[in-house]
Design a protein around this nucleic acid. Sequence first.
DNA 1: CGGATTTGACCAGCGC
DNA 2: GCGCTGGTCAAATCCG
Length: 507
Amino acid sequence: MVMEERAMQIDLSLKLEGQDEGEKDEEKQHEISLDDKQGKLHHEDGIEEAEKREEDQDDASPENLLQGNNLKIEKLSVLQMEMDRMKEENKQLRKVVEQTMKDYYDLQMKLAVIQQNDTKQDPQIFLSLRGGPKTIQASKQVPEIEKNNNNQGTQLTSEADSGEEDGELGLTLSMGSHVQQRGRDESTEERKSMEPINKLPRTTQLPGITSYPPNPPNRKARVSVRARCQAPTMNDGCQWRKYGQKVAKGNPCPRAYYRCTVAPGCPVRKQVQRCLEDMSILITTYEGTHNHPLPVGATAMASTTSTAATFMLLSGVNSGTPVVADGIISDAQTPISYRSPHSISPPPHSSSTLSNIINASDHSKGIVLDLTNNSQQFSFAGSSHSQPQLVYPWMSSNSGHHHHKAGSYGGLSISNELGSLRGVDKGNWKTEEEKSSLAENVSSIASDPKFRVAVAAAITSFMSKESPMAQPNGSSLVLGDGEAAGSSSGSKWVAAEFLPACGKPLQ
DNA sequence: CGGATTTGACCAGCGC
DNA sequence: GCGCTGGTCAAATCCG
């Protein structure tokens, strides 16, 4: 029996380095189950001892002694089998983890190949994951992610976009194919600095990552955000000045044109238009790169679009229509958020989940982040009957029955997400089914290499941005343990980050 | 009065 | 080349 317990301890200590949270959860659950079994074993030990005492007291005849021994042997063999079974389980789990890690490293290798190819073919494509004063930039999108992923440094700089935007925060939608042809544009000088970006079409194709220009040459790529909002515009924290309005063909709702007025000469524009099918949906299209630090509240949208671009770059194949971010990128303070950790609707396929939010099917429109309630895949319901939805604080309060509910996560926060994935808020899961459901989802989501890469890039940029220099108010980063914040910090982050609400007119 | 918004005009790209 | 459309300008207007 002592031997068995020792073996059990060995099994319990079976852990792999570098495994992700989902795997840890899995392991944890396994540990729990093992603990239960161990408890049972102890219990059985007690019974055995009691029986033994009884035997000693009642009958010490050789026959009964033999029967007792046989009984012991039987129990031992049963326990032995149980042990073997658990060992087997551990082996299988280990295999799964190893396979996942292998996939992960394979992906990294592929990214490295892309980096090399890009260096030879197109030195102008770049990705900037700006994180405040520690400007994170690389001359290539993929390598940047990879480097971040490898945690080989949270600060990467290159000459690709040097000389501008030190200390920049927030929305940096640096679009490829950005060529301003109109001579009268007041920001010609700034745009010139971006012109070399992404002029050449990308045709690099590798398994798992396929890319080509989403837009015709000389057209900017864009990130559109669809969100339910009753107000004329979403308050994304930035200052905008309306400079035009036009009724576009096919949609009676006028399209409004805004430009960023946080800093003079900022080239960032946005278009706001109501969705024809659903007037409550506001479509906001961002275009350009801020050349100034953003207000605290403005970093959220920037982060979201950034992650969209990052993830889309990595999962273009999944969308059916391969897409590349085409130079989009931004300050990757990266929060894609999910409603709450309480119950994850089981994603049919983890790798397709974000793709359902990030709609890149229309190349001419760039990336579309669909934050409306239609996104069924990655939903977290506060209660079992809740309709799946994503909640972004800038959304209208009219649809805000889910907004800032006590105990719920309203946030656009990677910390929230990871916190939930780790089961930080397990206390709110009422049933074992929910727990196991979460565990399954966690492992399936976390085992998606693409998801990992995107998250890793986000986390890295988070960390690089965490410097107080970047954000004096720094509320956007509450990553308590360097990996993910707990539930409470996530909520704080949300509160600080998204107080500006949709209902308030911009300006 | 200064800044923001409105709105008609202008320009460029694109398809036929 | 022409017309359509999207995007932008800038004068007029509004508003605090």
